[in-house]
Amino acid sequence: MVTSADIGSRVSDGAGRVGVLRDVITDYEDPAELPGRRRKKPMAFLGPEGGGREWIVPLEAIRCVDATDFGRGGECAGDEGGR
């Protein structure tokens, strides 16, 4: 699983988009939801490599794409040691 130790890594969001991991919030609550309907969920914040609008993705959908990470099965550097 991607963690905050992987911030700055190139990642894929599961929908074919590639970006840079900007932040990981494990207890994110969507402010667009009504307060009584908000649920905490782990989310990743990604940004385009050349700059632009950030987007959010469920944390479990994120996979690393750097050439140095291909042998890791989509796991980022922070995943070493079974995290």
Rank of each mutant, 00 (worst) to 15 (best):
G51M: 09
G73N: 11
D66S: 11
I25Y: 06
G78I: 07
T26W: 04
E80L: 07
G19H: 02
P35R: 10
L46R: 01
A44C: 04
G78D: 01
G71L: 02
D27M: 05
G16P: 10
L59T: 07
G16S: 14
S12T: 15
E60D: 13
S12M: 09
L46D: 00
A5M: 10
E60M: 14
D30S: 10
F70K: 12
D6H: 06
P31H: 11
R10I: 09
D27S: 13
R72L: 05
T68W: 01
I62E: 00
G78W: 00
T68N: 03
G36Y: 05
V57E: 00
G50L: 09
C76Q: 04
G82P: 05
I25V: 15
C64I: 12
D30Y: 06
R53Q: 13
L21P: 02
G47T: 14
M43A: 04
K40I: 10
A32H: 12
G78E: 03
D79M: 08
R39A: 10
E54L: 08
T26F: 04
K40T: 11
D79I: 02
L46K: 00
V18P: 08
S12I: 13
D66P: 05
F70Y: 09
V57C: 02
L21D: 02
E80W: 03
D30E: 12
E80N: 01
D27H: 10
D23N: 15
S9R: 09
K40V: 10
G19W: 01
K41F: 01
V57D: 00
F45A: 07
D6A: 06
D27F: 09
S4H: 10
G73C: 09
T26K: 11
L59V: 10
E29C: 13
A44S: 07
G16A: 08
R17E: 11
G71Y: 12
V11I: 12
F70S: 12
G50K: 11
V65L: 01
L21A: 01
L21F: 03
A61S: 15
V24M: 04
D30Q: 08
I25Q: 08
M1A: 14
R83H: 04
E80S: 08
A15F: 15
G73P: 04
D23A: 15
A5Y: 07
